[in-house]
Nucleic acid binder design. Sequence first.
DNA 1: TAATTTGCCTAAAGGCTTTAGGCAGTCGCA
DNA 2: TGCGACTGCCTAAAGCCTTTAGGCAAATTA
Lengths: 189, 189
Amino acid sequence: MTRVGLTVERLTRAGAELADEVGFEQVTVSALARRFDVKVASLYSHLKNSHDLKTRIALLALEELADRAADALAGRAGRDALTAFANVYRDYAREHPGRYAAAQFRLAPEAAAASAGGRHAQMTRAILRGYDLAEPDQTHAVRMLGSVFHGYVSLELAGGFSHSAPDSQESWSRILDALDALLRNWPAP
Amino acid sequence: MTRVGLTVERLTRAGAELADEVGFEQVTVSALARRFDVKVASLYSHLKNSHDLKTRIALLALEELADRAADALAGRAGRDALTAFANVYRDYAREHPGRYAAAQFRLAPEAAAASAGGRHAQMTRAILRGYDLAEPDQTHAVRMLGSVFHGYVSLELAGGFSHSAPDSQESWSRILDALDALLRNWPAP
DNA sequence: TAATTTGCCTAAAGGCTTTAGGCAGTCGCA
DNA sequence: TGCGACTGCCTAAAGCCTTTAGGCAAATTA
């Protein structure tokens, strides 16, 4: 009856790995217990419930994404920043599909407030400083960028662009070109 | 022991309604059986399994969406078509959140091939006929439009834009303006 | 070393999925 | 109209997941 040394942090990290391996949907308290070779009930002294586990994985993914984005943004501006930022999302989703799915997990309002979501929005705004957009257009542009990045990455991950020409990488590059052009030339109302 | 008259079609429609009421995730063979006041096992002569049910709901949603989009597109061109098409997605997602979630369900390749997915792509291409874009830019633009529509609607549905100014409707309008401008002025490589 | 806390365990109840086999309406055909 | 075949819904049962309650032993503290 040796102790394995479970902690919320270890469980969350293992849950994130599990998500990348089998998909976020399949992350289950049982599967996690199996992975630690421990009885299921044992996890319930560390986790409130299954939803709690998923929330924690989502928060972890949002933090990781924000950290990477912050790194990528350091020392860059304008189109360079836009591209680097966008690639962080896409690359993260490709490297960690389960975590990326987790990042889309519908958080309860207080969890959302405590999440790295705010950092993401702030960073998107920072990118736009290179583009001379006043409010409220800046907010519109923030929302649009978020939509394109999230939308493209989701569709790509869902297999939407595979098996058809031109390849996805090329579309991605050209879409970033287009966004850059659009931001430099944002239409008046 | 009267017969209720279950059919795959009725089950699928009821499943779609259930999805809108409680969320696509919560759509379950058990819940559906409850709704028809019938034993769970009875549904298994009509449905292969739970995944089959979800696939059918997804296909239904994709059909409905394509039908609406086709209606909206009839007799419109250019920016007018773009706006109408985009609004179909957004409105459908707001009216039928569960079905919209279903439409995002990862389909198996053959199910995807038999789905209305192709009609959606064709209609997006039709819109672009008003904008003078040659290949491969047309495909890039199709992918970008899909990304923005899907991304925006997902983020909005997830509550991303509520409780903050400016309101979501305004951003949506301005983003459509921006897309129209971008398509009229698609940058060269 | 004794007392206390903490961590993992056993047990059990309840829900969802899926398969197997059964009985009774319902429909086609003579 | 009556008989047989089919179809549709049912009971039963096994397997997996979640969650709670209560227990014992290892680790921590004094």
